[in-house]
Design a protein around this nucleic acid. Sequence first.
RNA 1: GCGGGUGUAGUUCAAUGGUAGAACGAAAGCUUCCCAAGCUUUAGGCGAGGGUUCGAUUCCCUUCACCCGCUCCA
Length: 540
Amino acid sequence: MDMEKLVSLCKRRGFLFQSSEIYGGLNGFWDYGPLGVELKRNIKDAWWRDMVTAHDEMSVTPGAPATYEMTGLDCTIIMHPQVWKCSGHYDLFCDMMVDCKDCKSRFRADHLLAIELQFPNSKETDAPHVLLGGTGEKEEIIERHKKKLKKLVRVHGDYLTLSGFMTYGQLNEDGRKKFICPECGQQGNMTEPREFNLMFKTIVGAMGTENDAAFLRPETAQGIFVNFKNVVDSTRVRIPFGIAQVGKSFRNEITPRNFTFRSREFEQMEIEFFCHPDSSRDWYEYWRDRRMRWYTELGLSGDRLILREHAEDELSHYSCGTADIEYAFPFLTEGEFGELEGIAHRGDFDLRSHMEGKLVKNEEGCLVLETGPDGKPKYKGSGRDLTYRDDQAKERFTPHVIEPSAGADRATLAFLCEAYTEDEQPNDKGQMQTRVVMKLHPRIAPIKAAVFPLVKKDGMPEIAQGIYRDLKKRFNVFYDEKGAVGRRYRRQDEAGTPYCITVDGQTLDDQTVTVRDRDTLEQWRVNVADVVEEIAGRVG
RNA sequence: GCGGGUGUAGUUCAAUGGUAGAACGAAAGCUUCCCAAGCUUUAGGCGAGGGUUCGAUUCCCUUCACCCGCUCCA
């Protein structure tokens, strides 16, 4: 499928517009049009209903290790700045970056390492002093510069590497002059480390200063963690249980690209599922499979949708298991997949972070409090007790967290891509014509049914309008009496409307109307009185 | 952020240093008994800002956006 065709259909039919388009647009921001807002809301509603309100906490859901409860939250976008310091986002998202002025490569100042070389056997008193730049292991960095090294060794003899890495950020001015770019080999050509903010910064208070800086949330999850105790205290939920939240998040992405796939303002659908450490692995597997099934059931086909378990070395420092649900978006190259949702086993990292302060992994692989140069905690936690007391087992523990975190905009985009179909259908003269049809699952289709009088006379519009009013009480439906009926059908095809109801001459005799299926073009007759139930039974 | 490409009507595209045309779409009317039909009519555009020029949609610069590649992607 050609992405340009989908983008143009989205604009033409009102699924998606560029934000602030009349002013030239704004990179990384998109608006949902009249059809798009319905589609996206249907997706969010389906998610909320399937995950939260329709969840049966009294019986064991198929595949689940036990019964569990689900509840929801809606937290603010701006939160206390300490939240992001303890969660690790502040350090991670507010980076110092270094660019090579020559080849324009960019590196994180704290990831760009320097290996210092000495040439003790050199006959020259002013023996060359170089710092090899690079990322990764020492051997990798030396390998990267091997050409240059060979030349140096020929002139100056063998070299010694001084022990210990230094990051570029730690180098003094002299060191930076001797630093060699790992990409192009130019020496002393890097910029100073510059601030690079992936979190949107704002000021709280009309007279606020930099001291009142706050951030728009880069994820919804933290609102759930900091409210964990509130939920436990106010709802009588017992572990295992999950808290769901749908809401906007913001990231100053370096390269927003690929339509809405990487936007700077986006909406997440997240669950933080709290369970006992001993059963966390089982719950992780449950949520991984449960979430995968959700997409499949709403129409994302098997071969374009994959579940990808992360390799050990790909895991975040706190995670002991992560899987991505990925979709083969048409704008990606063949064989590539884009992430729709990540299901992460986060252990007790988050709750502990907000109790104790920002955590890091030590040499033994254990999470410990990160300390600053003065030996004190770098970022202090809340000090609140976020452990959980199981009265029945008479046990107190810090719950482990399973996090299925889905992108609502990415899901919407995937459903749009999957739905876009072109087929050949005959026109009224029997000639084959290309038909564009959005084969959206009826449950998420923006318009559930359209009602037409076949022609605008003989009382057909009146009957059709009556059916329209009845349907409108329960569904988003559309009425149209203008022009040829074939044109009206095609319009609905592009909007993804699964059913069209047409009042014709026979209606006047026997009170039946035709129902047309969007995908098969089949038509069958239904009594006017049964239309609402007919549609209800089909759109769920 | 870098390199390349592209910005003309709602969409897809033309033409042009002398202020723009088509197709489809949209709207109105007539006609029409089932899949973008026909006839009539209407509305609608040079991404933005500078510069060169008597005059710029066209040439130049800047900027913004989109596409491709690189980079990045907790």
